[in-house]
Computed example of a mutant assay.
Amino acid sequence: MPKVIWWGRSDLDYSRNRICRQLLQALGYQLIDFSPRISALADIEAQLKGLSADLVWVPCFRHRDVASAARWARKKNIPLLFDPLISAWQKQVYERQKIRADGLAARRLLNRESQWLHSADMVLLDTEPQRQMFMQRFKLSAAKTACVYVGAEQPLFTPIAAERSPAAIEVLFYGSFIALHGVQTVIEAARLTRQHTHIRWVLLGDGPVRASAQQQAVGLGNVDFEASVPYRQLPQRIAQADLVLGVFGDSEKAAQVMPNKVFQALACGRPVITRASAAYPADISKQHGLWQIEAANPKALSEAVVQWSDCAREQGQAAHTLYARYFSPPQLQQQLQTALHALGFVHA
Rank of each mutant, 00 (worst) to 15 (best):
R100D: 13
R100H: 14
D102W: 15
G103S: 11
L104R: 09
A105G: 08
A105C: 10
A106R: 04
R107Y: 15
L109S: 05
R112Y: 14
E113L: 08
Q115W: 13
L117C: 10
A120Q: 02
V123A: 01
V123S: 04
L124R: 06
L125A: 08
L125V: 09
D126V: 05
D126N: 08
D126P: 03
T127C: 06
T127K: 02
E128M: 10
P129S: 05
Q130A: 11
R131Q: 10
R131G: 07
Q132P: 08
M133H: 11
M135Q: 15
M135N: 08
Q136C: 11
Q136I: 13
R137H: 12
S141C: 12
S141D: 15
A142P: 08
K144L: 08
A146W: 06
C147S: 11
C147Y: 00
Y149I: 02
Y149M: 04
G151P: 00
A152W: 02
E153F: 00
Q154F: 05
Q154E: 12
Q154T: 06
Q154P: 04
L156G: 01
L156I: 06
F157C: 01
F157S: 00
P159I: 07
I160Q: 12
A161I: 13
A162K: 09
E163I: 10
P166D: 08
A167G: 12
A167E: 15
A167K: 12
A168Q: 15
I169G: 00
Y174C: 06
S176H: 07
S176Q: 11
S176F: 05
I178P: 04
A179C: 09
A179M: 08
L180R: 05
L180C: 05
Q184I: 07
V186G: 06
A189M: 01
A189W: 00
R191F: 03
T193V: 04
Q195I: 10
Q195A: 09
Q195Y: 10
H196A: 07
H196L: 09
T197R: 14
H198F: 13
H198C: 04
H198G: 02
R200H: 14
V202G: 06
V202Q: 07
L203Y: 03
